[in-house]
Design a protein around this nucleic acid. Structure first.
Lengths: 215, 215
DNA sequence: GTCAAATTTATTGTATACAAGAATGGAAGC
DNA sequence: GCTTCCATTCTTGTATACAATAAATTTGAC
């Protein structure tokens, strides 16, 4: 359990937002939330500030804080930015990742493959995420790593939809193998390129994402 | 003037931090700051949260918030990340920037050149910043643009040092011309490459040295 | 004299009270 | 019936009071 109630509440609110429990533009009523969490307005306000600073909500002075769900355009922009960040991580990791890092990547891929064979979506998703995180780490730039992790976190909910599509997991696995090959060969440009298109949402994927948003 | 006192205070504190008025690790005393700004602890606390969430300070629960000036390693990491972000912006801008955007770039360069001839460092700095911001905008991805602007803002104080070196401004100008040429030619890779090395401060070698020291 | 435990002090975190601006609703005017 | 202005109500922002925990200091034992 957290030490500060405000932190715990921020976390819970974040989860609730990701779970879609609030409409876009909805006002987050301090008093109602205070009653709901059985605390005073003070920790609620601090929690709301956290949401605002992470972009999940917007604050209008003397008006309140409002839920801010990304629309399709912003979502695309976030995916594109994620693709660029991953490409950067890949480029840097190509010459910096350790042997142990490479081994971890291979291991994560094995677990991904197993998950596919068992049709275990959750495990696949988890190991896939881990795979990418190893690359962030491999870039040996903790600032960049943090940025990548943050955006990965923001996109988690939407990424999950993506993977549900038939055949996506198999293709994704093939790309993972190519990424590992590029990193092993210390081919920075190739690593960057493959990662970028692996993450990017283009063509068919884009339409599928839009379609899934409407539901 | 801001509507919320907390916002105004956050801004002032940020400036004070950038101006180096606080030591690294120094505790930001809520009560002292409250007296200093002649407000209660409440707006001070909200302002401190802003600093924490932007990474300028660190909060340790029930201990307080402490100034967190980036050390040489983190600074390098931030510059490297900036270089990657700029490269991404350049890549995207190559095929997306408008004619008017290109014209603005040329115009900014002219003003930069004039500033060099007048030895007007401040103007040079301002127009140089503007030049880069036009490229962020040219990427036509407002999320990425915001990320780039944020990091540019964080690095402002340190970037200023960089430019003081003799001959740096001339070299920088030459690189600007090359960047514009790449964008005009819609050469995404070249734009990315030139921008990356334009922004990157120290070389790969130095970073590798630092990184290897950590392991 | 030194170390440890307990008490005091100081500081953060939370609750509540108050102030000020924004939204709402109704009455007056057209 | 519609609009406008005013009063009321509601909500946020700030101040202050209280609670809880960490730091500091004192006191006692060895």
């Amino acid at each position: 359990m957290e030490i500060r109630r405000a932190d715990k509440i921020a976390e819970l609110l974040e989860q609730a937002l990701f779970a879609g429990q609030y409409q876009d533009g909805e006002r987050l009523d301090e008093i109602k939330l205070a009653e709901q969490f059985e605390v005073s307005r003070t920790p609620i306000r601090e929690a709301l500030q956290v949401l605002v600073s992470s972009g999940l909500a917007e604050q209008i002075p003397r008006r309140g804080v409002f839920v801010r769900q990304p629309g399709p355009v912003e979502l695309m922009e976030m995916f594109e930015t994620m693709a660029e960040l991953e490409a950067s991580c890949g480029r840097l990791a190509a010459t910096r990742i350790s042997e142990s890092g490479l081994a971890q990547l291979v291991e994560a891929n094995v677990k991904c493959q197993q998950a596919i064979e068992n049709s275990d979506h959750d495990t696949y998703y988890l190991e896939n995420e881990k795979f990418h995180q190893i690359i962030y780490r491999g870039a040996a730039n903790s600032y960049l790593e943090k940025q990548a992790l943050q955006l990965q976190n923001k996109l988690r909910a939407y990424r999950k939809m993506q993977l549900r599509f038939r055949g996506r997991m198999d293709q994704s696995m093939a790309e993972h193998l190519e990424i590992v090959a590029a990193l092993q060969g210390e081919d920075a440009e190739r690593a960057a390129h493959v990662l970028r298109s692996h993450v990017a949402v283009q063509g068919e994927k884009f339409h599928r994402l839009l379609a899934s948003l409407k539901n």
